[in-house]
Design a protein around this nucleic acid. Structure first.
Lengths: 114, 114
DNA sequence: CAGGTGTGCAACCGTTCAGTTGCAGAGCGA
DNA sequence: TCGCTCTGCAACTGAACGGTTGCACACCTG
């Protein structure tokens, strides 16, 4: 399920144009041409961005008659969010432990430390 | 506080080497030279990555005697996680509404809609 | 059937980026 | 004090990236 590595998903989210695309696709399904009409880049550029987003598992594409419509998937973003939260918390925890150790006068006076 | 834009933070997290660095800095403070000793890249490369991470608000740097030590900040990562979770949920919600609309027989039967 | 629209593939271009080497300065430590 | 180490700045290189244009093909529609 979490088959896509963290850096890959983050890199996909690390571009302003892709966020524009995602925002539009979060409001409803859209084709590449439709996106190119509303965004200041060519359809081919949009296509490349969609490829990156699809490989990151952030969108889903579906053939609808002649055209292909894409839409944003919240699931992957939620999974990423949980992962980042977990990591951030672990950093904070270790940071607290380190500071606590640093403020201790010495190993022999570690009495009233909570 | 959330002065750093989403794409900037995500881009900073979109590199495998930077994740390596962050992982090490999450375990405790380290200098650039120490990181270069343990990672397969030069100190100068590490320095550039640290610059990116600092601008994204993901690490903090502190002059400790002659050397400069860096450490990972969980706060920014937590803020990012909450933001991504919020966005992901909104996508899911709209997606549900769209699917629900698609399965409705016709517009004239939209009575008991909330 | 013909024209318009949507898609895919490929080549090309300028910029950014990750990484390197080299050098000079600053501060601990023996 | 002398040397080792840590740091900062600068120049350079190759690859990746965002973006473009051009072309060929499929398909729906008037």
């Amino acid at each position: 399920m979490t088959a896509v590595a963290l850096p890959v998903v983050c890199a996909a989210l690390g571009d302003a144009t892709r966020w524009e695309i995602l925002t539009r696709l979060g409001e409803g399904p859209m084709s590449a041409s439709a996106l190119a009409r509303v965004l200041p880049v060519s359809r081919q550029a949009i296509g490349k961005h969609l490829e990156v987003l699809r490989e990151a598992g952030l969108i889903e594409s579906e053939q609808r008659g002649r055209e292909v419509v894409h839409l944003a998937l919240g699931a992957r973003l939620g999974a990423l969010a949980r992962e980042l939260d977990r990591i951030g918390r672990s950093w904070e925890t270790r940071l607290l432990r380190i500071k606590e150790l640093a403020e201790r006068p010495g190993p022999e006076a570690a009495f009233e430390g909570q």
